[in-house]
C-alpha cells in the first residue's frame, strides 16, 4: 500500500530527467609509488605495515609482536603452521568471540586510503574480521590499485553475499575528539605487504 503511495508521489513530484554523468574518469598522477603511498596512509590511520620479501617471514614477526595471543587462526593456507592453526568453520559466529588474532588475504588494496577489499569467501565467517582482537592482512603488492575508482573497476559486478573495505583498526573519537584505537572491532591492524 505504502509502496504504491510513495511511488505515485515520486512520479508526480520528481523533476525532469537529469542525465547521469557518463565520464567517471578522474585525473590521476601515474608516477606515484603505490606501495609507498599505501604505507604512509596506512600508518597515518594507525596500522602497522611490514614490507616483506615473502610470507615465510610472517610467523616470526607475529610471534614477536603478539607474545600473549592465545587463540590465533588463519584463513590463509600459506601461513598455517603449528603456531598458527587454520580457520575451522563453526556455524555459530559467537564461537569466535575469544579469537585474539585472525589472518586474512584481501582481494584489493587501495593506495589512496589504505582500504583493503575483502569478500565473504575470504573471511571464514562474516563476524571474524570484526570480532577478533587483532587483525592481520597479507597484502600482495600486485593487488594494489591507486584509488576507489580503480577499485570498483576491478570489483565490477562480482557476486558476493557480503564484502567490505577495511582501513585500519576500529576506532572512535567520540569522547572529546580524542582518537582511541580499538572501539568495538580489532584493537590493531598489521599489514604484511609482499
Amino acid at each position: 500500500m505504502s509502496k504504491e503511495k510513495i511511488l505515485a508521489a515520486l512520479r508526480h513530484n520528481q523533476p525532469e530527467i537529469s542525465a547521469l554523468p557518463v565520464n567517471l574518469a578522474f585525473e590521476r598522477d601515474e608516477s606515484i609509488n603505490l606501495v609507498e603511498k599505501f604505507r604512509v596512509i596506512a600508518e597515518g590511520i594507525g596500522s602497522k605495515v611490514y614490507v616483506v620479501a615473502g610470507l615465510e617471514e610472517v610467523a616470526a614477526l607475529i610471534a614477536a609482536d603478539f607474545p600473549e595471543a592465545k587463540r590465533v587462526l588463519s584463513t590463509v593456507a600459506e601461513v598455517v603452521s603449528s603456531a598458527i592453526p587454520a580457520f575451522e568453520l563453526h556455524e555459530d559466529p559467537h564461537t569466535y568471540a575469544d579469537v585474539d588474532i585472525a589472518i586474512f588475504k584481501p582481494r584489493l588494496a587501495v593506495a589512496e586510503n589504505s582500504a583493503l577489499w575483502i569478500t565473504e569467501d575470504r573471511m571464514g565467517v562474516r563476524a571474524l574480521p570484526f570480532i577478533t582482537q587483532h587483525i592481520i592482512m597479507l597484502v600482495d603488492k600486485n593487488t594494489l590499485v591507486p584509488d576507489m575508482h580503480a577499485a570498483y573497476e576491478k570489483i565490477g559486478d562480482t557476486d558476493y553475499g557480503f564484502s567490505t573495505f577495511i582501513a585500519g583498526p576500529s576506532k572512535t573519537a567520540d569522547i572529546e575528539q580524542s582518537l582511541v584505537l580499538g572501539a568495538h572491532g580489532p584493537r590493531s591492524m598489521t599489514i604484511f605487504m609482499h
Partner: peptide, 23 residues
Amino acid sequence: RLLTRSATGQPITTYSSHFKKPR
C-alpha cells in the same frame, strides 16, 4: 571518496561494508 573527507578529514571510514545477501 567524498564522505569521510568531508566529515572528519579521514581518507575513508574504517569499515565500508557491502551487505548483499543474508548469511
